[in-house]
Design a protein around this nucleic acid. Structure first.
Lengths: 217, 217
DNA sequence: TAGATTGTTAATCGATTAACAATC
DNA sequence: TAGATTGTTAATCGATTAACAATC
């Protein structure tokens, strides 16, 4: 029987499990088990079984998991059986890279519109889409029933964009601007901040300034 | 007195505190306090004080924190007083965006070389740097004493690149390829996977498929 | 001193791991 | 049945919050 509401941290691991199952399927594997999944993901087998148990029982006692079946179940749980229409705000270098990235569409996220406020960029093509003026943001979101957006604008514009996205009905924002956004209840924000990640690593790497495996010159 | 070793999750928040302090400095503020920092970051004041306490006491009783002083202390703690030389592997769309992103150099991370295995790309300019053949990876890392690298190559090449980076002396890897890397002990990996983040959000957003604030057409 | 806010301790809460009965 | 691995419970571990003495 399905247990109580899964913690957010558990939900955040499901995409990793899904990714690994897709990889196993590509390797033509038909079954796996919590031990193997854990080894390949750097997670304990117990944790994987516990995580899955929040949503149901998907394995076979003594035999592990059918990779196709578990993959399909995870897709269902994560609401990935439909194609999500996504808008991208910001057509700079990052916006370009995101619009051209095939990983989104391969995984069920279709970028349906790209916006920018720069007159120079509006009207140009980015990733097969015509860049639109950001003034059309609300209109496009409404017409396409868009629920998820990606922010790839400078810090100075990010909060205002988030405000408009939320007001227009978006309830999930993937934010690449290095700023903590204030959003209304019910709107989920995920942050991607490579600088913060590098700084996090620098803490651990930073000990050896001049030592390391360097005999000196 | 400084307490015991700080948990990794605490270290991961320090860059957010640093970012907020830089923002306060730009706003010409001279002091702040744990309450304000917490409010603006969506974190409890108690947690901020606790986090900082792992590294020392940086505030003034009754008066809060001097923003410049705390900023400097965080930079020291995170080993950000030097400029980190970083290599970027992969000169595709993402590599382009990363090489052109000024946020790295503004925060003390200088990309010193860009590599690709595609003959078409080697020799071209990306972000002011000449793209080099990936065969020169070890040589450049060694000559420049590089300790941090960014992987922006396809999944199929990522593990092999990580192996070479680790063997060449890199101890921090920022990985954009959607795959869990196997690395030797002592090598720290941080992952950036926008698809996983979108999937995580889809779980929460996914409930309302056809309902939401839409009266139908 | 009165007021404010830190730094720290103790209490609470939550997540991970270990162990094992269930079961195919 | 014997063997294997799940799903679940209980124990452990770790992180967050609450409370408050310290102190400027």
């Amino acid at each position: 029987m399905t247990k109580r509401k899964a913690p957010d941290i558990v939900v955040g691991r499901l995409p990793l499990y899904l990714r690994m199952l897709n990889q196993l399927i590509e390797e033509d594997r038909s079954t796996t088990n919590s031990q193997e999944l854990g080894d390949r993901l750097g997670i304990s087998a117990a944790q994987i079984r516990k995580d899955l148990s929040y949503f149901g029982g998907f394995g076979k006692y003594g035999a592990g998991y059918d990779v196709i079946y578990l993959r399909d179940q995870l897709r269902r749980i994560l609401h990935l059986e439909k194609i999500w229409r996504v808008v991208l705000v910001g057509a700079g270098d990052l916006g370009h890279a995101l619009a051209n990235y095939h990983g989104f569409s391969k995984n069920g996220f279709e970028i349906v519109a790209v916006f920018d406020s720069d007159e120079q960029k509006v009207g140009t093509m980015v990733g097969g889409l015509l860049v639109q003026d950001v003034s059309r943001l609300e209109e496009v979101i409404s017409e396409n029933h868009v629920k998820i957006a990606i922010i790839a604008v400078p810090v100075s514009a990010a909060q205002a964009v988030a405000d408009r996205l939320a007001a227009a009905g978006v309830s999930g924002i993937l934010n690449y601007a290095p700023i903590t956004l204030k959003v209304p209840p019910g709107v989920k924000v995920q942050y991607i901040d490579p600088v913060a990640r590098l700084q996090h690593m620098a803490f651990y790497v930073g000990g050896e300034l001049n030592k390391s495996s360097d005999p000196g010159e």
